[in-house]
Computed example of a mutant assay.
Amino acid sequence: MSRVFVISDHHFGHQKIIDFESRPFGSVEEMDEHMIEQWNSVVAKEDKVFHLGDFSFYNKEKTKAIVERLNGTKFLILGNHDRGRSKSWWLDAGFHEVSEYPILYQSFFILSHEPIYMNKHMPYVNIHGHIHSQKYEGQHYFNVSVEHWDYKPVSYEEIKSSLVASEEQ
């Protein structure tokens, strides 16, 4: 049975992100390889992965080579660093589907790159990236930036369990 995962903000090929986010890598090549290994350590070929943006700073050829090495069927919601390239560019790079906008998943989760404003009366949970190692307070937000998850995609089961646990506190 296939599982569903979510992750964001890999920034493949982005040397400066190592310093910006204090990532523990000596080079962009080391970072890229580690992130590919971490992805494939939890995602199987038949799984689905929603990537919530800022995937790669490489050209199409290098980006496609990375996408091909990653397990699972991959869906991309464009992040601020992805928007300079067309939807067809990302499809050609190997993503199964690409969305320019946030999507509602299972009628409860809003998947977006940037956190979306939510008042305390909204019943949704916003699964997002963009803010890297920062965190929004409250039960309405779930940050899946790679820095929080040891560079591994997070399963929906883990997200749901985490939300239930935080409600019980």
Rank of each mutant, 00 (worst) to 15 (best):
W89L: 06
I36V: 15
G13N: 04
L70K: 03
T63H: 02
K87R: 15
K87D: 10
Y101L: 10
V125Y: 01
P24W: 09
V144G: 06
D54F: 06
Q134L: 14
I66T: 04
K45W: 05
K135W: 02
K45G: 01
S88R: 14
F142K: 07
K45T: 11
G79H: 00
D92A: 14
E29I: 14
V144H: 00
A65D: 12
Y141T: 10
R83C: 08
D47N: 12
R85E: 11
K64A: 15
S22V: 06
S99L: 08
F50Q: 04
S99R: 13
S27A: 09
E68F: 10
D19G: 12
K60N: 04
F109S: 01
S27C: 10
V43G: 05
I110V: 15
G129L: 07
L76A: 08
W90K: 06
N126C: 14
I131N: 06
E137I: 11
F142P: 00
A44N: 14
I36L: 08
N71R: 04
D19R: 15
Y136A: 07
E46V: 09
K62M: 10
V43D: 07
I131G: 03
E46F: 04
S41W: 05
I127A: 01
S41L: 07
M122C: 14
N126R: 05
M118R: 09
N126E: 10
F57L: 13
I103A: 08
F25K: 04
V49Y: 07
L76R: 06
A44G: 12
L111E: 01
L70C: 12
S41G: 11
S22A: 14
F57G: 00
R85Q: 13
S88C: 13
I110E: 08
W90P: 03
S56L: 01
Y124W: 13
Q134N: 15
H81G: 09
I103W: 00
G94N: 05
E21L: 08
F55V: 02
I110F: 14
K60Q: 15
E37W: 10
H14F: 08
N143E: 09
N59E: 12
G94K: 02
H130P: 06
G72R: 03
K120I: 08
D82T: 01
S41Y: 06
Q134V: 10
L91Y: 04
W89M: 03
I18K: 02
N126F: 05
L70E: 04
L111V: 05
W39H: 11
P123S: 09
M35F: 07
E97Y: 11
S88I: 15
